[in-house]
């Protein structure tokens, strides 16, 4: 079992994610350079947070053309687990691996803060260790995290139970006050129809060690590790 963390020029949560996988979750992990056209022997690929290519045109808009993205798409189509965090989520939307887009935050400002998210679905490789309605305290840090999609897509996401995380208060209530960035339906994270590609704006890697205030986020990485272990056992 091996995790891969993609390094785009401008990624800046790559080392943080690597640290959590290797030191907290205790799993093998490699960096994948953006020029690589294969994800090699990785069993789960993480697109980390940051400002790929400076995000000058539009978040994630340039990164989707990176050679590695061809490999990521191919990997995902074979059922490989792909997880986009923050900028990674934005890239997955731009690349068409996830529907919708991430607009400027409603207050037009960058927001760095701890927020609460509620787990909405547990039948995914990313949340299978969670309880439904479990509230996780995980930080956000973004200027463009305001999730948007058309009505039809939203209905589809809801019907197919593909909204995995929604911004909530500490008691799990989905309220307007708990929505930090104006996201449609308080959406903080979604998956694709096949449930093997996750995009989320909050940073679980920043909430994986109690020393940093919260270790709620590591359950997501543990879920992925469990899934991979099961798959390995099965094969």
């Amino acid at each position: 079992m091996k995790f891969g963390v993609v390094m785009f020029p401008g990624s800046n949560c790559d080392h943080d994610t690597y640290h959590v996988i290797s030191k907290v979750i205790g799993q093998p992990v490699d960096f994948i350079w953006h020029r690589q056209s294969a994800v090699a022997d990785c069993d789960a690929v993480i697109l980390p947070g940051g400002f790929s290519y400076g995000d000058y045109l539009r978040t994630g808009a340039i990164a989707r053309f990176s050679p590695v993205m061809g490999a990521v798409k191919e990997f995902a189509s074979r059922g490989g687990l792909v997880m986009g965090i923050c900028n990674g989520f934005q890239i997955l939307c731009e690349a068409g691996l996830l529907p919708g887009a991430l607009l400027r935050n409603k207050n037009l400002k960058f927001i760095c803060d701890h927020v609460n998210i509620r787990v909405e679905a547990t039948d995914t490789p990313f949340t299978n260790r969670c309880q439904r309605n479990q509230v996780l305290s995980v930080p956000i840090a973004h200027g463009d995290g305001n999730y948007f999609c058309d009505e039809q897509t939203l209905a589809e996401l809801q019907r197919e139970n593909r909204i995995l995380f929604r911004y909530s208060d500490a008691d799990g209530r989905i309220t307007a006050e708990a929505n930090p960035n104006g996201s449609l339906d308080n959406i903080a994270g979604i998956c694709n129809r096949e449930r093997n590609v996750l995009g989320m704006m909050p940073h679980p890697e920043r909430a994986s060690e109690q020393q940093l205030g919260s270790s709620d986020g590591r359950i997501i990485f543990y879920s992925v590790a469990d899934t991979l272990a099961e798959l390995a056992k099965a094969s």
Partner: peptide, 28 residues
């Protein structure tokens, strides 16, 4: 002010902005 700054990237910030001094860990 500080909500507009990413004060957590690199996952070392042990004492966040707001107290007398900020504290960062040195991993390992």
């Amino acid at each position: 002010v500080y909500r507009q700054y990413d004060h957590m990237v690199r996952t070392n910030t042990v004492v966040l902005p707001g107290s007398d001094a900020a504290v960062i860990r040195i991993k390992e």
